[in-house]
Design a protein around this nucleic acid. Structure first.
Length: 151
DNA sequence: CAAGTGATTAGC
DNA sequence: CTAATCACTTGC
């Protein structure tokens, strides 16, 4: 995942408190989905992280597909299934219809699971951005094949 | 490496 | 209104 840490982050969609129709969900409560459409064809899923009116979120870049593999394969049509922010949205069927919904209750939820040990979490520069390119706000598991396939 | 693709945004 | 940009993926 990658953090987009708010008004002072030039790579954040809400940089400088930019508040438009698109960025509105970022100003909602933590646990809100922020789903945006980019490059004319891809959806990307974020989870809002800060209290209302402080627009910050994390972009989900990869996950380990555990259940519903057949459905994911049908939606994606190819591998990898969930390595990459737009791939994972396609595999999970996430679209703009879920923009602004709660990720704590509803059809799309982020559950509390087994937390990785801190020493297994690695940081690095965020991918694919043109601003603040070397801020170490990408967090991932070094030994995870799913994130390595996410570039 | 470049193309595809269209919403979003800033700037007239 | 116009034009530039874009937190990506795929196929050369």
């Amino acid at each position: 995942m990658e953090a987009y840490i708010g008004p002072q982050d030039p790579a954040c969609h809400a940089y400088g408190h930019r508040r438009t129709a698109r960025t509105e969900p970022l100003y909602g409560p933590p646990g809100t989905a922020y789903v945006y459409f980019t490059y004319g064809m891809h959806w990307c899923l974020n989870a809002v992280t800060e209290p209302p009116d402080y627009p910050a979120a994390v972009l989900i870049r990869a996950l380990e597909p555990i259940a519903g593999l057949a459905t994911m394969r049908r939606r994606r049509g190819k591998e990898p299934l969930c390595s990459g922010p737009a791939r994972l949205c396609e595999a999970l069927g996430v679209t703009g219809a879920l923009n602004g919904v709660s990720l704590q209750r509803g059809v799309l939820r982020i559950l509390e699971g087994t937390r990785p040990r801190n020493r297994d979490i690695v940081t690095g520069p965020r991918i694919g951005i043109t601003q603040a390119t070397n801020w170490p706000l990408r967090f991932y598991l070094k030994s995870s094949p799913w994130v390595s396939a996410a570039r």
